[in-house]
Design a protein around this nucleic acid. Structure first.
Length: 325
DNA sequence: ATGGTTTTTACTGCGTC
DNA sequence: GACGCGGTAAAAACCAT
């Protein structure tokens, strides 16, 4: 085992430039919480991806200044076209009008007819893209909501997830990927950003897509959207486990403490954060004389007992070493 | 594809209630 | 004897190259 810091990539795919780029390019950082800033081109805002603070706004508002109450009103008032970039987000299934100025028999069209066809093409294109994106979004947001409820994730996580999804949609990341997969990945990313992570397994349980695909799409999204997601902190799992097991505040505190000393010792690198958290919770329950069995912990944490054993030994060793060097 | 690391599975032995 | 716990070996899963 190499003794320098390795990443446990299963839980956090991308941290290649963790320490290296300290202050080279001044990075856009939120003044509130230090999180990554993201630009929402739709509304001309620069918002923090973590806490949602709007840093700059009102540069250019690209949204409509009117409201439509039904479909016909929408047609009447809407006078802008589709966004300028759009690839085949509908997988080319919708109707389109050919570019050649020929009729069904291959004869050329008169100039008046050509003009008419040109107008039709324009409008067809506009409706096709706009409606398809909206349908897409609607379905995705529904899915995100469903999964978030199933996992007991708070509203702000859903908000973040939908922001991420919207951005993915805006940057044309969807073609070739399923709506399900992308919305699941968005939720996974959002949960981690919010500091209330759920493991890939838990996510996969409530999603309609397989774990592999979620992981793949997640990596892709993170890379393309330049989301900065810190490696999952073991401590962020502690509260959930502790409450699932009805442990005291004291035990929870001790678990945290174990983890932080372990961190100083560098014992944690390359290990599964979930496993560490589970072990810490177990060890803490021992130290505070609150009886929980290894199998109970392994149950709520979805981690094998063996892993808990191995980790918690390491945790206790680290604790001793800090006590007497 | 390969190799190295971690996690899981399955099994065994020990002590206690 | 069941249960909790610890240890081990082999298999599987995973990441990096």
């Amino acid at each position: 085992m190499s003794d320098n810091v390795r990443t446990y990539a299963g839980e956090h795919a991308d941290e290649t430039e963790q320490e290296t780029t300290d202050d080279e390019e001044e990075r856009l950082v939120c003044p509130e919480c230090g999180g990554q800033l993201a630009t929402d081109t739709e509304h001309g805002e620069t918002v923090c991806a973590d806490c949602g603070l709007v840093v700059e706004e009102g540069e250019i508002d690209r949204g409509p200044e009117w409201r439509a109450f039904d479909a016909s009103e929408k047609d009447e008032k809407s006078r802008v076209g589709a966004p300028t970039t759009n690839m085949m987000h509908d997988k080319g299934l919708s109707t389109n009008i050919g570019w050649q100025d020929k009729d069904a028999y291959g004869n050329s069209l008169s100039s008046r007819q050509r003009e008419k066809m040109q107008r039709l093409r324009t409008w067809n294109e506009r409706f096709r893209t706009r409606d398809s994106k909206e349908r897409n979004l609607k379905q995705a947001l529904g899915e995100i909501d469903r999964m978030a409820s199933a996992l007991g994730l708070p509203d702000n996580v859903r908000e973040t997830a939908s922001v991420i999804y919207r951005r993915a949609l805006d940057e044309d990341l969807l073609p070739g990927r399923s709506i399900e997969g992308v919305s699941t990945s968005s939720l996974y990313a959002a949960a981690r950003q919010a500091g209330t992570p759920r493991s890939l397994d838990e996510i996969a349980n409530v999603s309609r897509v397989e774990k592999d695909e979620i992981a793949r799409t997640y990596r892709y999204i993170v890379r393309e959207l330049k989301l900065e997601i810190k490696p999952a902190d073991p401590e962020s799992y502690v509260p959930r486990f502790a409450s699932d097991l009805d442990l005291s505040e004291e035990a929870e505190r001790r678990a945290r403490q174990l983890l932080s000393t372990a961190k100083e010792q560098g014992v944690h690198s390359g290990k599964s954060p979930v496993g560490l958290a589970a072990a810490a919770v177990y060890a803490a329950s021992l130290l505070t004389n609150e009886k929980v069995t290894q199998s109970e912990v392994s149950e709520v944490a979805n981690i094998s007992e063996v892993t808990i054993r191995n980790r918690y030994h390491e945790l206790l060793e680290a604790e001793e070493e800090i006590a007497m060097p």
